[in-house]
Design a protein around this nucleic acid. Structure first.
Length: 325
DNA sequence: ATGGTTTTTACTGCGTC
DNA sequence: GACGCGGTAAAAACCAT
């Protein structure tokens, strides 16, 4: 009966040296002569078979550092399993029963066995999403995932958001609040904690809950879970604005400097971090002679031009007195 | 609920292309 | 003349009390 029950592991995907070699040899082409290239893993090089051109060197060998001589040994030595993830409601550790009615050798099952497997599948599914909390979590995690990709947030943020939501669920914070609201709040908190903050506006744009509910739930969750969320650092917004506006690294560096001196002068307390960041980017672009209008900046930062004006005056004053050039 | 602070909205005048 | 920029006043939003 265990024959057809499998827990999926990543191990199946690990490739041996030979596999990598043939795979790359077929895919890549030499830029010089158009011939086939093969990867020489021993010397960490990719060389052309025909003309001997070294296409790539000092690559990272992602293969295992041990050798296995048969399948059993491979199982023995491999330390790789499926990664646990908080992004799935059961952390990816549950048992899955394949839907094909085949046994481990790929043979079809007898009709009696088939019925048995069907019953097992049914019950397995029932246990997996057993109570309301689990189902709740399942939905919320889906929601978090959706919003996170819409905002282009990295995986670790989703993980954090998942953890926060999990905790909220355990502390019975959900009754009386919408799943989506709490999920959104968790994501918002996670993004800020991870140093890739998104403004309330941006978040509520992709969420089904409005801003007011979001802020309410967010506050509540933070308070109840005793979460430490430092006030957003304006510098964290800078890289995103800079790249959205196609500005140079020089400008980005400049903007950071401005924010630094502003911090030293204590100009920024009480002001909105987003506005500060936007103003810094604008001012930096001015100083490096790159053309951006206040309007452009205000759009990508979703902040008003007036605020940018006010802030960037302060920023320039602060930088003057901090480091008189 | 209230008062103080910050941000937004709306409008105006100036200079440049 | 359109556009970018700077300024102002009043309204709105936000926050702590």
């Amino acid at each position: 009966m265990t024959d057809n029950i499998r827990t999926y592991t990543r191990e199946d995907e690990t490739t041996t040296e030979e596999e990598t070699r043939t795979e790359q040899g077929e895919k890549e082409q030499c830029p010089e002569c158009g011939g086939r290239v093969i990867s020489d893993t021993e010397h960490a090089e990719t060389v052309c078979q025909d003309c001997g051109l070294v296409v790539e060197e000092d690559e990272i060998d992602r293969g295992p550092e041990w050798r296995a001589f048969d399948a059993a040994e491979k199982d023995e030595k491999s330390r790789v399993g499926a990664p646990t993830t908080n992004m799935m409601h059961d952390q990816g550790l549950s048992t899955n029963i394949g839907w094909q009615d085949k046994d481990a050798y790929g043979r079809s099952l007898s009709s009696r066995q088939r019925q048995k497997m069907q019953r097992l599948r049914t019950w397995n599914e029932r246990f997996r999403t057993r109570d309301s909390k689990e189902r709740n979590l399942k939905q919320a995690l889906g929601e978090i995932d959706r919003m996170a990709s819409a905002l282009g947030l990295p995986e670790n943020v989703r993980e954090t958001a998942s953890v926060i939501y999990r905790r909220a669920l355990e502390e019975d914070l959900l009754p009386g609040r919408s799943i989506e609201g709490v999920a959104t709040a968790a994501l918002y908190a996670a993004a800020r904690q991870a140093g890739t903050p998104r403004s309330l506006d941006e978040i509520s744009a992709v969420s089904r809950v409005d801003k007011m509910e979001l802020t309410r739930t967010y506050r509540y969750v933070i308070r109840e879970l005793g979460l430490e969320v430092k006030p957003a650092d304006p510098e964290h917004y800078v890289p995103r604005f800079v790249s959205d506006l196609d500005l140079s690294d020089e400008t980005e560096r400049m903007a950071r400097e401005l924010l630094d001196s502003a911090r030293q002068e204590g100009v920024h307390s009480g002001k909105s971090p987003v506005g500060l960041a936007a103003a810094a980017v604008y001012a930096a672009a001015l100083l490096t002679n790159e053309k951006v209008t206040q309007n452009d900046v205000s759009e990508v930062a979703s902040i008003s031009e007036v605020t940018i004006r006010n802030r960037y005056k302060e920023l320039l004053e602060a930088s003057d007195s901090a480091a008189p050039a």
